[in-house]
């Protein structure tokens, strides 16, 4: 379960990387639109854009390769239904006992008066 959460978190990070890459691209173009653009700034934003996209590509490739290894294409047929049903029956037993005890208490109170 922790592994799945970790993988979903990594995918969230990749999503953030995509927005970062697009922000870098925007910043680079914004710098170019100025009267006196700083070449250094443009280069750094552009290399940031390319680097982040490389990270995105590597991360996604890793996840897709993992999926190729673990999935079979068939739906998972296991479930925890049996144990849930057993637990629900245990709850019913408890509730039944509680109802009978309450009835007993009601009778006791009736005779105490």
């Amino acid at each position: 379960m922790a592994a799945l959460t970790q993988r979903l978190k990594e995918l969230d990070d990749i999503e953030r990387d995509i927005t970062t890459a697009m922000q870098s691209a925007g910043q680079a173009i914004l710098e170019l639109s100025k009267d006196k653009p700083s070449l250094k700034q443009v280069e750094s934003q552009t290399s940031n854009f390319v680097k982040t996209l490389e990270n995105v590509e590597n991360g996604l490739t890793k996840h897709i390769t993992y999926l190729t290894q673990v999935s079979t294409g068939q739906a998972h047929e296991g479930s925890s239904y049996a144990s849930q049903k057993d637990l629900s029956m245990a709850w019913h037993r408890i509730h039944h006992a509680r109802a009978r005890l309450m009835e007993l208490e009601r009778l006791k109170n009736k005779h105490m008066q």
């Binding site: 993988r7 979903l8 079979t72 998972h76």
Partner: peptide, 8 residues
């Protein structure tokens, strides 16, 4: 991933 990650 959620539907087909069998180990998880």
């Amino acid at each position: 991933l959620v539907l087909n990650d069998f180990p998880s």
